Amino acid sequence: MSGTDNPPGLDLGRLRDHLDRERPGLVRGELRAELIEGGRSNLTYAVTDGASRWVVRRPPLGHVLATAHDMTREHRVISALHDTPVPVPGTVLLCEDDAVIGAPFYVMEYVDGIPYRFADELAAIGPDRTRDVVLGLVDALVALHAVEPQRVGLADFGRPEGFLERQLRRWGKQLAASRSRELPGIDELHQALADALPQSGPAAIVHGDYRLDNALVGRDDDQVKAILDWEMSTLGDPLTDLGLLVMYSEREAPADSPVPTASAAPGHPTASEVIARYAAGSGRDVTGVGWYTAFAYFKLAVIAEGIHYRYTLGQTVGAGFDRIGGLVPGLVERGLSTLRTSQEG
């Protein structure tokens, strides 16, 4: 853990004052913090007083798409899921007052685990353990989608009816808000997805960004200890989560890619195996997952373009952002080809 200097976006003095007011006695020593690298969206910090550890989450600096960086939603869903089979960290507090550190934020308990992101990290544990880790992630998704929203106080967490139409509009608006260059094919992909919109099955709590490096995995037992990054969660079509997981299972990213390359690790289940595991555990009809996978490529392209836009404005923190923009054309092409293949089948 680094020293007492403030990391970008987090004033430790103001944070300490707020914690002392809201949770007297929680902090017992001088706070130290460091930015947790790896995230490309919200900023995440590990914070300690020398005796206890916590995690602080806040939106990115500068250009912010409010609906994509909602700390309140993330805090609410994690709190609601705490007593379910879904592994999540415990929450400490939510602060919606921008005056404290310059943006809304929340504090949660620190969970020790590994967010496997790259193929070489999984290669170190071998193919058998890699397979178990990824299939465990699928099982955790099945557990999430089995939670009844009304039983955990999330009956009003979203509007399932018309979910996919709203998702397409929302991501189209986020593309427009971050558009700073020509992106061949991306409008074609958006329209093709709209033209082939599927009929949603039963709604569920949707994570919105479900992938391996948004989970913490036990260092010794390979169990999923916590699912993280819930800011895009809502009630909606659960196959959007599956489609994203499938996309990350079939992508072939270069070794130096700034986005996850875990699927290239020996032992990583194929996309077909991921789909079969989810179908067996959930009992849901997954025959239309190709559309959802193409939609996942579109969403990742929009996210990458938004990050590229913030990079061009000098508003990103960390390494690797200079390469994000170069990924977008390939994501668009994979989205188009995936959608064509699903329609041909």
Rank of each mutant, 00 (worst) to 15 (best):
V100W: 11
S257H: 03
A66P: 15
V302C: 03
L154A: 09
S180F: 12
R40A: 08
V100I: 14
D97A: 00
H18G: 06
P89W: 01
P254A: 05
V47M: 13
V47S: 12
R76E: 06
A68M: 11
R284T: 13
L168E: 13
V152Y: 04
A294E: 01
L81E: 04
A103L: 09
P59Y: 15
A140K: 12
R28A: 11
V224H: 10
G320T: 09
T4Y: 10
A226E: 04
L313E: 00
E148K: 15
A66R: 15
G325Q: 12
L144K: 01
R151D: 15
Y297Q: 00
Q191G: 15
L239M: 09
D187V: 11
P238Q: 11
D322I: 02
P24C: 03
Q315A: 04
G90V: 00
S342H: 14
D120M: 09
G218K: 00
T130W: 14
R129A: 13
R211K: 11
A66M: 13
G288D: 13
L154W: 02
G9R: 11
A215G: 05
V134G: 03
E34H: 10
I205S: 05
R277F: 08
H69V: 15
V100D: 10
W171K: 05
V332H: 00
A80V: 08
R58H: 00
